[in-house]
Design a protein around this nucleic acid. Structure first.
Length: 920
RNA sequence: GGGUGUUUAGCUCAGUUGGGAGAGCGACGGCCUUACAAGCCGUAGGUCGCAGGUUCGACCCCUGCAACACCCA
């Protein structure tokens, strides 16, 4: 075999798998299905994706190998706002605006962009080894899914669960669309608190002072509010104040919502431009005065001089004018949460407009119940809380977006403003008996992208048709996703699927942690700390990485800092580690933690692990190729029985880990078995046998078989995690050992057989390991090279020890490289020696001339000190009456045994020390 | 302000019914031992955030505090 070079093997195998249709569901096994969280069709793969999809792929491959009828449904999302923004930017570079093209032409342009860039994400998924069922790949805007969207919208409308109304919504004044609460991100930013004087109508020389962070909205004030119990203002409730800069008189009202501690305890009420004020306005039947246009400039409802000003210019003008009039009490610095559009980054405006909403409470109730009843289970469990808190306080969902790219709302209006909702214009006409001369125009808005993704698990399977796929694969088994998307997507899928299919979309939700950079910072383009998974697979030079991270930044001034940090973190760029190593890293770090710092050193470590397995396979092939081997349990020795036992323990551990979504434990079990047991011990222990002329042929043949067989099982066991190299190696296993199949992908997953776990073999090999480790310790401590043979003498051994030494003498000889190995004569004095304890037995390496007396004494002192501490602690326990009386008897017995052992060991160590001191 | 989570070796993290503190990387020392130097052998390093409590016994359970992170308002 050649050196391990992942790039030489990975891509070719993926093509083979795909062209042979191995990813397709098949057989009559239990259906197992997962729907991919649809990536944005024009997007690229980031670390979070790679992480999630790697986890899913292991589950899919695991279940496929277990014989389940397994489907991983592929599809992409049209990502309404994100995609429209990209194309709008492209147009801007040509000096055009979407309106210059018009709706039709603009959409053509977006479809073109989708065609050219839509392949990126799918080819990246292939590089990752994702065994997706590409044949039934779907897209949220394709015909079938659009039909599902239409159907759902119309039925919800018919059930009275969709309504249209003028409401205060989150308005993005740059994109000129409404956004749902979830698309708005609030962060604290420095600002000011202005204290304004509002003169009382009856006595204009007196005034109330209101505190506000948004003085320009005072132009739309329709009341001033105080707390009903606030004694400072009780006399004023019901009176009026004069709203400065306008000629309006507005009432003073009392409402318990007012925070008496904030500012002066007196707040201005602007129902058309603040969500809380809107609610209060509803309670008190206040007028709504909208003072903004859709681009956040001041409109004609405001006094002449402010009209047309941008909101922030208007703020300055209002403050200046109030100050000139002596109506500005004071200005304070103040931090306040500022809402910004998730996509555009601009300050969001509460804005009054006509929108479509889903009445959500009736849908939320069964969705809450499904989780309460355990029909859907969160893994880890505690994410249920996030879900419940969100669902129990859920607000109606604004689903209309003033965009073009998306599912157009199936509502038509006649000249009188009557609205007709139907699956098509024809249906609308037919249902309402409208003659052809009634002119209908369709609603210009499209639906929130999440509306179509909410239908994902069943729309991709053909709904509203009752397809065999829907019948077989729905509900899906598990949804793997990040916690950031529970509210956006997971909760909405649960609601919609329960409503339209009557069953849950998935039985389990595995919530992954969030992959951050080494500093624990969220990875993002603007921070310039993002990693492209393919750069870890293929490698990238430092210069290319910097170029990639600083290219096309929203804030170009960040470029220098990003370059500096990148140079510091990756001084030599990133090496090509290959997909298998990257994937294995993901499993190893998939702990229950919420954030996962991605550490490139670990990728390197797991690349080394892949290399280790590769080389072990090389060893197996070198020693079995063109040589006879045969399965022969009678001829196999204790070491063979031991490695099989360890293999079966590992098989059990991996299976259990996968059933419980503990990918980290699965990875750990594989890593430790393959490296620590198979490579470091088993392979070493085969060497003296395979190359010795004195060993019976049937043992050698049995051992060759064990090597091949254990390797073959390791490959199947590890395949879901490191699919490429396991396939590559598996193909080279002789057919007699590996069955006649064409691919490892479709072989049976190993199952643990308790009968193969031979405890006697395990304890014998543990003894061998102890003896070898003991002699290695002595060599290590004394700096004696393996090239220099050392005499080894045992003393005080039991019958069992004697048997084992006889039986394993040749193995020990090979591993220890002694000049001589044997028992101390019964009455002979112990020679001066470096020593090691193996239970009751002592291992002596008499090195009269070579021994470093001081070093040996120091080593023994340390050992004695350690044992003394342990003795003290154990004596304390055993001597404690309470412990002896109250602790379980087996624990007490265990402690007593331990104490006996410690005492015996201590006595020996002290004797050894005395012996060494005696040396001249 | 409310909620959730985190705090274990220099770094990144395991530690699943409360009963002997672990791994990888890094550090140090020694090895080209015919699968692998992307390797092998060995060594050092931790009052398990702080303070109480429960218990015969606490990294683990309870209370409080601190720092950090995220979510919601």
């Amino acid at each position: 075999m050649d050196k391990y070079q992942p790039q030489d093997i990975e891509q070719a195998w993926y093509e083979t798998w795909e062209t042979n249709n191995y990813f397709a569901p098949s057989g009559n096994g239990t259906p197992f299905s997962i729907a991919i969280p649809p990536p944005n069709v024009t997007g690229t793969l980031h670390m979070g994706h790679a992480f999630q999809h790697s986890l899913v792929d292991s589950l899919i491959r695991f279940h496929r190998m277990k014989g389940d009828n397994t489907l991983w449904q592929m599809g992409t999302d049209h990502a309404g706002i994100a995609t429209q923004m990209i194309v709008t930017e492209q147009l801007a570079a040509e000096g055009k605006r979407p309106t210059d093209l018009g709706r039709e032409k603009f959409l053509e342009r977006v479809w073109e962009w989708k065609e050219t860039s839509g392949g990126t994400i799918t080819s990246q998924l292939r590089r990752l080894g994702a065994s997706l069922h590409w044949e039934t790949e779907r897209f949220t805007l394709d015909e079938g899914l659009s039909r599902a969207v239409l159907e759902v919208f119309v039925r919800l409308y018919e059930d009275g669960l969709i309504y249209r109304g003028k409401r205060l919504v989150n308005w993005d004044p740059v994109l000129k669309t409404s956004l749902s609460d979830l698309e708005v991100e609030s962060e604290e930013e420095p600002g000011h608190l202005w204290h304004l004087r509002y003169p009382l109508a009856d006595t204009p020389d007196q005034y109330l002072i209101v505190a506000t962070t948004r003085p320009e909205t005072m132009l739309g004030d329709t009341a001033v509010a105080v707390h009903p119990d606030d004694e400072r203002y009780t006399g004023l409730v019901g009176k009026e104040v004069i709203l400065p800069l306008t000629d309006r008189r507005i009432p003073v009202i009392a409402d318990p919502y007012v925070d008496r501690e904030f500012g002066t305890g007196c707040v201005k009420i602007t129902p058309a431009h603040d969500f809380n004020d809107y609610d209060m306005g509803q309670r008190h039947e206040l007028a709504l005065i909208n003072i903004l246009n859709d681009d956040a400039t001041i409109n004609d409802n405001a006094p002449q001089k402010y009209r047309g000003l941008d909101r922030f210019e208007a703020r300055k003008a209002v403050v200046a004018d109030l100050e000139r009039l002596g109506l500005l009490e004071k200005t304070e610095d103040h931090k306040l949460p500022v809402p910004r559009g998730e996509r555009s980054g601009v300050v969001i405006e509460p804005y009054l407009s006509d929108q479509w909403f889903v009445k959500i409470k009736p849908l939320a109730e069964p969705a809450i119940k499904a989780v309460e009843d355990g029909d859907i289970e969160f893994v880890p469990r505690n994410y249920e809380n996030t879900y419940f808190v969100w669902m129990r306080n859920i607000q109606d969902w604004n689903i209309s977006r003033q965009q073009w790219w998306g599912h157009r709302i199936p509502a038509w209006y006649d000249a009188d403003g009557n609205v007709y909702v139907a699956r098509s214009e024809q249906e609308a006409r037919a249902q309402h008996d409208l003659s052809d001369d009634v002119v209908l125009s369709q609603d210009d808005d499209v639906l929130d992208t999440w509306f179509s993704s909410a239908l994902w698990t069943f729309s991709t399977l053909g709904w509203p048709e009752q397809t065999p796929e829907l019948e077989t694969f729905h509900s899906t088994d598990v949804m793997v996703t990040g916690h950031d998307i529970i509210t956006f997507w997971v909760s909405r899928m649960i609601m919609m699927t329960l409503k339209f299919i009557g069953e849950v979309p998935f039985k389990k939700i595995y919530v992954t942690g969030m992959v951050t950079d080494a500093e624990g910072q969220k990875q993002s383009k603007s921070r310039g700390n993002g990693l492209d998974p393919l750069d870890i697979i293929d490698g990238i030079s430092l210069d290319d990485l910097i170029a990639k991270r600083t290219d096309n930044l929203m804030q170009p001034r960040m470029a220098e800092r990003i370059a500096k940090n990148t140079r510091k973190e990756f001084p030599d760029g990133i090496k090509a580690f290959g997909t298998d190593a990257l994937r294995f890293t993901f499993y190893a770090i998939a702990t229950r933690s919420r954030t996962i710092r991605f550490d490139m050193n670990r990728v390197e470590g797991y690349r080394n692990f892949c290399n280790k397995l590769w080389n072990a396979a090389n060893y197996v092939f070198l020693n079995t190729a063109d040589k006879p081997f045969s399965q022969n349990d009678e001829a196999a020795d204790v070491v063979d029985r031991w490695i099989v036992a360890e293999l079966h323990r590992t098989i059990a551990a991996v299976n259990q880990a996968m059933e419980t979504y503990r990918f980290d434990l699965a990875a750990k079990a594989l890593y430790e078995f393959i490296w620590d047991e198979f490579c470091d011990w088993y392979v070493e222990l085969t060497k003296p046998i395979l190359n010795s002329p004195d060993v019976p042929a049937d043992l050698i043949e049995a051992k060759r078989y064990t090597l091949l067989s254990v390797l073959e099982q390791i490959l199947r066991l590890a395949h879901p995690f490191i699919p490429f190299m396991t396939e590559e190696i598996w193909q080279q296993i002789p057919a007699q050992v590996r069955s006649q199949g064409k691919t490892i992908m479709l072989q049976a997953y190993p199952e643990s057989d308790a009968a193969r776990i031979d405890e006697q073999a395990i304890s014998d090999v543990a003894w061998i390991k102890d003896v070898v480790t003991g002699s290695r310790n002595i060599r290590g401590e004394m700096d004696i090279s393996l090239a220099k043979p050392i005499p080894v003498i045992f003393s005080n051994g039991s019958d069992e020890d004697q048997r084992r030494l006889e039986e394993y003498r040749s193995l020990l000889t090979f591993l220890i490289r002694p000049s001589d190995i044997g028992w101390l004569e019964p009455d002979a004095p112990k020679p001066p020696a470096s020593t090691h304890l193996i239970g009751e037995m002592e291992l002596l390496v008499p090195l009269a001339g070579l021994i470093d007396k001081d070093a040996e004494i120091a080593r023994l002192d340390k050992e004695i000190e350690r044992k003394e501490k342990e003795q003290q602690r154990t004596e304390g326990k055993v001597g404690n009456k309470n412990f002896v009386e109250k602790a379980p008897p087996e624990v007490v017995a265990k402690e007593r045994d331990k104490l006996t052992e410690i005492r015996s060991a201590l006595a020996k160590l002290r004797q050894q020390r005395a012996d060494v001191v005696e040396l001249e």
